[in-house]
Amino acid sequence: MKVLVIAEHDNHKLAAATLNAISAAQQFGGEVQVLVAGCDCAAAVSEAGAVQGVAQVLSANAAHYRDQLVENLAALAAGLVRDEGFNAVLAGGSSFGKNLAPRLAALLDVAPVSDVVSIAAPGRYVRPIYAGNVMVSVESDEPMQVLTVRTTAFEAAAAGGNATLRELSPREDLGVSRLVGRELSKSERPELTAARIVVSGGRGLSSGEKYREVMEPLADRLGAALGASRAAVDAGFVPNDYQVGQTGKIVAPDLYVAVGISGAIQHLAGMKDSKVIVAINKDPDAPIFQVSDYGLVGDLFEMVPELVAGLAVQ
């Protein structure tokens, strides 16, 4: 059994999702190799080589891999899987993995499996459907298993490995899509999907200004990542990458604080596996209270500042 993990990285650092995918790959019980395709990506290659459980890192270095454009990456990975006889290919269930894995699977003429949360054996998985309201067990006899894994369901693989490195020759540039630019949110806060505490704000915050005024001190106090409901993103309070939910990010922190969020099923899909959920909402019947461990009924504009002040006192 040979398992390939496709690394997500920015040529310098691996994305956290790759570490979750590596630990999922280890559950196949075979040899785990990691593909790092990029340009001047030696740092990412050596980081991958130092992850526990990785036997070999395959690196492909070319200008046309720099921007991680999917057409070139999928073609490279498909060729590699065929030529070297990989039995399974995994990627993290991030926007990178979701974009890539189905394209790769189609090039190999196999059915991909998305968002796997548990691996019983190679070809036997569990995944959520219907916004996480149903868990389905899936069996696949495909000769090459292609899957994305939900990052919250697998521990991040630790450092401490010592993989061999092998350089691959790049494939030709397909010259299909071209990167025009990126507007990436910069933040000193922990990354949303990997944070131990997440504080999320919804439509109840009423504006972007109020969101920042109310939510940032709470996040600062708790060392938390900031999240939001779709309604708050659609209304322009915060950027799109804050969205938690069925169609946004999936989080499962130790503590999730939902502020002015009603608790629509599409939102719950993204956070109901959190260990402890706190809801602050003025409507005592808001559905969010059905999943929260601690509910506080009241006006968030009073409650949150009071909470921030209270947390300052030991």
């Binding site: 196999v110 059915a111 149903v134 899936v138 696949s140 059905q290 509910g295 506080l296």
Partner: peptide
Amino acid sequence: RLRHLQHAEPPARKAGVKVADV
């Protein structure tokens, strides 16, 4: 190509408590 076998509802979260104040 895939067989979908068992469908199950995920374990429900039990509703917790309402707290009186901050």
